[in-house]
Structure formats: C-alpha cells, structure tokens
C-alpha cells in the first residue's frame, strides 16, 4: 500500500506521534510520580496504536508482536510494577528537579527543533510519508534530558523507558519492514530486565540510605 501524507492512516499516525511528544513534555513538568507513571503508560499505549496502524495498513503482521509486547509489558506490567514500587517506598513527588519546569519545557521544545533538523535528511527513507522519525529523535533527546534532570531513581527509570519508546518509534518509523523483529523484541526484553533490576536496586538504595536521591550516591566513593 502506498502512502501519501494526506491519507487517513498517515494522518492518524502523525496525530498519535504528536500525542506521544505532548505526553513526553507533560512528563517533563509533572512532579507527581504516580501521574508520571500513568502518563508513561498512556504514551506506550499511543505507541502501540501507531504500531497497530502500521501493521494493519502495511500488511506487516510481525509488527503485531511489537503491539502485543508493548501492551503487555509497557502498558500493563511495568506501570503496575513501578506503581507498587512507589507505594512501597512511599515517595510520591519528585521534589527538586535540577531545572525548573518552564526552563525544562523550553529546552524540550528546543530539542524537538533539533530532532526535526537532524531527521530532515532522512525523510525520504521513511515509508510513512511524514516526520515520525523527527518525533522519535525528539523523544530520545527529551528522554535523555529527563534522565539528567531528575534526582529520584524512579523518575530516572521512567525517563529511560520513554527513551526506549522513542527508540522503538524510530525503529518502526524508519523501517516498516526493515529492522528485524528480533532486534525490537530483544531491545524490549533488555529494557524490561534493566527496569526490574533497577527497581530492586532502588528499593535497596532506599533501604540503606533512606533516600532515593541519586546525587547522594556520590557519597559512596571512598
């Protein structure tokens, strides 16, 4: 099926991608951890929707695997896990991000422009006919920024997950058929394991230091 930027599926994909970006920005200003987790779940849901549209319209049944994994893992399991974690350690707020919300918003906006600039040469590679790749890069950049900006381990984990969402989006966007499924799936499990390990680690850190502030980890060195 050949896609022009104006037909319905393409428009839907663009809208959903824009939605992912917006959620990313909302996460940049959100302080409540539980809300952030919910936002992340929503973002993953949007990603799953994009993947579904692609799978359906481009006749790529293997992409349904990605959809299934995302739904099971990132929409249901991980949010649940993180939710439990947050409730167990009893910290509900990211108290002091390094940059204030307005400044981080502006920076994220700037990253989006950078994403656009970087992705521009590759627009011809895309099969989707629109700049989903730009959004993906913007997600990556803002995700990294989010990791930098946060002190709490949990919110850093969340940021890492959004980076992963961005990577998946890039993978889907660039190569509707191209990138082997196995890479996507392994990437997914990689992150899954990483998050679980981190989750346990966070709990332990909390136990030993009575804090989740990662800047205090500096004290560990001799």
């Amino acid at each position: 099926m050949n896609s022009s930027p104006s037909d319905f599926p393409s428009q839907l994909i663009t809208l959903l991608a824009a939605g992912m970006l917006v959620i990313q920005l909302l996460m940049a200003v959100q302080r409540m951890l539980l809300t952030s987790i919910r936002l992340f779940a929503l973002q993953s849901l949007l990603f799953a929707a994009i993947a579904t549209v692609i799978a359906y319209c481009h006749n790529a049944p293997e992409v349904y695997w990605v959809v299934g994994l995302t739904l099971a893992g990132k929409v249901c399991f991980l949010p649940w896990l993180l939710n439990r974690q947050v409730r167990r350690i009893g910290i509900v707020q990211e108290i002091a991000p390094l940059l204030n919300p307005s400044a981080s918003m502006l920076l994220c906006g700037a990253f989006t422009v950078v994403g656009y600039l970087v992705a521009r040469p590759f627009t011809s590679l895309e099969r989707l006919g629109n700049n989903t790749l730009a959004v993906a890069i913007a997600l990556l950049l803002t995700g990294f920024f989010l990791m930098l900006n946060r002190r709490k381990a949990i919110s850093q984990v969340l940021a890492l997950l959004t980076v992963e969402n961005g990577a998946m989006l890039a993978a889907v966007a660039l190569t509707t058929y191209g990138m082997p499924l196995v890479v996507e799936v392994s990437m997914f499990f990689d992150i899954l394991v990483a998050v679980m390990v981190l989750g346990i680690l966070v709990y332990r850190i909390r136990e030993s230091f009575a804090s989740m502030d990662l800047s205090e980890l500096k004290l560990l060195k001799g």
């Binding site: 824009a18 920005l25 989006t112």
Partner: peptide
C-alpha cells in the same frame, strides 16, 4: 510549548 509545537508541526508533518 504546545502552541509552539503546533507551529513547529507545520514543519514536522508537512
């Protein structure tokens, strides 16, 4: 920022 993105998206999603 949403409004700025709206503007940017006239580029992003031509």
């Amino acid at each position: 920022i949403l409004a700025a993105l709206a503007l940017l998206s006239t580029f992003l999603f031509q």
